[in-house]
Write a protein that binds this DNA or RNA. Structure first.
Lengths: 111, 111
DNA sequence: GAAATACTTAGCCTTATGGCTAACAAACTC
DNA sequence: GAGTTTGTTAGCCATAAGGCTAAGTATTTC
């Protein structure tokens, strides 16, 4: 996947991974602590963490035998930015359409 | 995929599909018109349109032999909403952390 | 230093994804 | 009504995704 947005959105397209993000928003946590909330084998869960990390959404640091995970806010803002831009373009278009509708109405009153 | 957000984010995780959204933001278009911009066979392209439609992000209407596509804004707002919420929780957490840091600093001045 | 803890790696399985070609169907156009 | 345009359907292929078990490694802990 070439694009950053590809990996961001694809990382968010899974409930397990969104749940991890939602948890990490409240503060750092260890792998095993995060894993407790999810009913799947550890290696499967690690794959999800791997995707979040390679999408740049989390960082990890190994301390002794424990790996601590932290969230990285920038990609969230970036993905949100794309959506916001699309929505603004969309709203702008609606505005132009309604302006056009008004103008047509006015012209038909004049004529 | 059970969740709405799953299908929304997964629909956005592909550059072809984001390009279609970006194009449709500017107004409705026919399948063949949209297809022109993408270097792939029509059936492949139709699969992308199918995903956008089943994610509820676009609507389509067949007029004669031409199928017209329109964008549906609600899902974009919904996905953006999730990201915004996460970002706000995150910023709230940073605020609490810096408040805590200030308090600790103040207490160490007092002590 | 043996045992327990906390990952980590390797490898397998099934289903989904994203691409293709070929053939079909419906609606204009001449 | 023959031909062209514009999808649509069916079916194939390769790779990625998301799950598993089993076995291995590195750190504590007792």
């Amino acid at each position: 996947m070439a694009n950053k947005l590809d990996t961001f959105f694809s990382a968010l397209a899974d409930p397990t991974r969104r749940a991890v993000i939602e948890r990490l928003i409240t503060g750092p946590a260890a792998v095993s602590e995060l894993h407790e909330a999810h009913d799947m084998a550890l290696p499967s869960f690690l794959k999800h963490l791997g995707k979040l990390e390679s999408a740049g959404m989390i960082r990890s640091e190994k301390i002794g035998r424990v790996r601590m995970l932290h969230i990285e806010a920038a990609p969230i803002a970036e993905a949100e930015g794309w959506l916001k831009q699309q929505r603004h373009l969309w709203e702008g278009r609606l505005d132009r359409l309604s302006a056009l509708a008004e103008q047509i109405e006015k012209e038909s009153d004049d004529g």
